[in-house]
Design a protein around this nucleic acid. Sequence first.
DNA 1: TGGAAGTGGTTACATTTGAAACCAATTTTA
DNA 2: TAAAATTGGTTTCAAATGTAACCACTTCCA
Lengths: 173, 173
Amino acid sequence: MTTDNTNSDITEFSNPMDAVRPDDLRLEKFLPYRLSVLSNRVSNAIADAYSARFDLTIPAWRVMAILGRFPNLSAADLVEQTAMDKVAISRAVSILIKNDYITRSEDLADRRRQVLNLSDLGRDVYERIVPLAQQYENDLMGSLSADERSQLDSIIEKLMARAQDWANRGLID
Amino acid sequence: MTTDNTNSDITEFSNPMDAVRPDDLRLEKFLPYRLSVLSNRVSNAIADAYSARFDLTIPAWRVMAILGRFPNLSAADLVEQTAMDKVAISRAVSILIKNDYITRSEDLADRRRQVLNLSDLGRDVYERIVPLAQQYENDLMGSLSADERSQLDSIIEKLMARAQDWANRGLID
DNA sequence: TGGAAGTGGTTACATTTGAAACCAATTTTA
DNA sequence: TAAAATTGGTTTCAAATGTAACCACTTCCA
């Protein structure tokens, strides 16, 4: 930092020069904000690790991750599982097909649907990325105790359920 | 849902038709992924509530929120506090100045720096958005017990510290 | 049956975003 | 003290994203 009235760390924000206003939003304790910063830091770090090596975008990797675990899904199924946009899925799928990472086959029972799967090459890549991703997650989880890890799990479930409610009903107000 | 091998809810993923592979990445339990979905859901819901009324983007509102609490920051300070991109800050700042929501003044000690503050109008808007944002946060936090809230607080601190380490040192591997 | 309505998926267009190049001011260092 | 390196901030351009319109197929229902 370069001047008196700034701080190198958010935890030092109570420097007297800062003239914190008591009724203000304490952004550094504001959950939506903290979630966003944390999530971006984590996702970007991981994406850096695989995007260069395998030429995958985040949405594309997500599609692979789901298909690796649950074969024979359609694009619509992916939309539902990932909460990603329909168009984002469509684009990710077409990139992945171009790269020969996934295959697409017609569903004869419903000729609008297209059934997606990892190709052999795709599964190969998938199996190389998975440990990488897990390494990051382990490192992250390693900063928590076993208790904290299980607390976090159930807390996320609750928050997710509440946020999901917002999306369903017409928001709060 | 439309077919046998899909599920309407991520918690139902263990349908026998799904042929889950034991060593695969369990994306629905993968922390980076869950954080991303949760964070996007929350931020978008809140943004919907203020963007229409005040014509603010998420980055712009963030800048206002920080400046409302900590006056006299430069763009670089904002980058550091928010973990947002430099360019995103620059654009948010120029929009906010155009809207007369913030002011920009030269730092005479270092003429590269520009000191930013909420304008009177900006503070006005800020003070109207803050309760709105808090309403959402309260609703979200309302889904947790007091214990869980304090657990979450310290868990986030730990995760953030670890993710911050990644950014500092050259990642994990 | 045969249209209206619904669903799966893609395309088109406008907006947002990010990386890299850039300018200007400052600090370093030889 | 002058060139080199660094820092604050903006612009440029390409890529990513979201909304809406759209086509093809299927389902519903008279």
